[in-house]
Each structure stands twice: as C-alpha cells, then as structure tokens.
Amino acid sequence: MKTCQQIAELASQYVDGELSMADWGQVRMHLWLCPPCRAYADQIAMTRQVLEQLPAEAVSEDVKSELVGRFRDWVDAGAPCDEDPEG
C-alpha cells in the first residue's frame, strides 16, 4: 500500500496519464478512499491547466524589430541556411 505522501508524489504523472497500469490502479483506489489526496490531485491538474493557458509572455517591440532587421539582413545575404546550429 502506498502512503498519502507517495500518492502525492505521483500526482503529476497521474494527471498526465503517464503511470503504469499497476500504479494507476493503486492511485485510483487510494484517491477514491482519500479526500485530501483527491483534492491534491485535482489541484495539481488545475495548476497544470492554469499554466497551460497562461497567455504567451510578450516580447518588446524594440527587440522584435531588431530581430526582424537581422532577419532582413540574412534574407539580403541570400538566406544562407546550411550551418550546424548546435556547433
């Protein structure tokens, strides 16, 4: 049997659907019997949802126009594109 602490540790994998069948069954059963763990798992799910729906952080106009300027230079140079970007 897993403890509440162990169940809480698995909450993210549970809400992401990433648990093995065996663990999933155990977590499911525990949540059914344990309101605090159920609240915790629900809150982790809500936290994920809130994070996923946060609006994209905005780039400043200055930075954007500087980058677009560099893009233009690159295009003017014939758009060379066969370097190794990780090199």
Binding site: C4, Q6, A8, P35, P36, Y40, Q43, V50, Q53
Partner: peptide, 22 residues
C-alpha cells in the same frame, strides 16, 4: 505529512476553477 506518510496538513479546498483563476 506525519511519520506514517498520512496528511498532517491536508490541502485546503479551492473554490475556484482554472478559468476563474485565469
């Protein structure tokens, strides 16, 4: 959690939805 791994300070109830929070 207590020594046996049970909640000592359980999560408080939330009465808000993700969309409400957003």
């Amino acid at each position: 959690f207590d020594a046996s791994g049970k909640w000592q300070e359980p999560p408080s109830e939330w009465d808000a939805s993700p969309s409400g929070m957003l």
